[in-house]
């Protein structure tokens, strides 16, 4: 999962200082593993270098904390594209998907569509696996089934999230 896109998404809702950015990220997506400062600043400098963010202003004083970052139009386009692009269905995708949903909600983008797109992608893969399974031998079948069950679990999570989107939006925005 990409911290860069997450930062861009957070910055799109409002410009922030590096420290605020880390705190917002930890709060929403970090759960039990807070970001290291080094990671925060290396990511920010990468985004700066690609022109996706810009330094909005510097407050008096010393250190990188004093810089306030804002998203550039190129950065918005990058977030947009990232959110629209379904993730390749693979195990343990939830973190990325969750980040995407929250950022979509934060930036006022249609989160339901995001979920639907992802869902369609999951099913596309499931259909493919099913086809492969019906044509294959027992070993193929067992391997495909393993993947199918995981995908199904993801899909269920997508459905559940879709059903609770309004609730989540309230939490994220409030």
């Amino acid at each position: 999962m990409s911290i860069g896109q997450a930062f861009l998404g957070l910055l799109e809702s409002q410009p922030r200082h590096g420290y605020d950015l880390k705190r917002a990220y930890d709060e929403r997506f970090g759960s039990d593993r807070p970001l290291a400062y080094g990671q925060v600043y290396s990511t920010l400098s990468r985004l700066l270098k690609h022109g996706l963010v810009t330094v909005d202003g510097v407050e008096p004083g010393e250190g990188p904390d004093r810089k306030r970052y804002a998203i550039t139009p190129a950065g918005v386009a990058d977030v947009e594209q990232w959110l629209q692009q379904p993730e390749k269905p693979e195990p343990y995708l939830q973190n990325t998907l969750y980040t995407k949903v929250v950022l979509a909600l934060l930036t006022g983008r249609p989160a339901a569509e995001l979920l639907d797109t992802q869902r369609a992608e999951h099913l596309r893969l499931m259909r493919e696996l099913t086809r492969r399974k019906t044509g294959g031998d027992l070993a193929d079948q067992l391997i495909c089934d393993h993947a199918l069950f995981h995908l199904e679990a993801d899909l269920r999570w997508l459905e559940l999230t879709a059903a609770r989107l309004t609730e989540l939006a309230g939490k994220v925005r409030g």
Partner: peptide, 14 residues
């Protein structure tokens, strides 16, 4: 309502 059953189809409608 089962994705694995729906996966036998050519496409899906929600």
């Amino acid at each position: 309502h089962e994705a694995r059953v729906a996966a036998y189809a050519d496409r899906e409608i929600v």
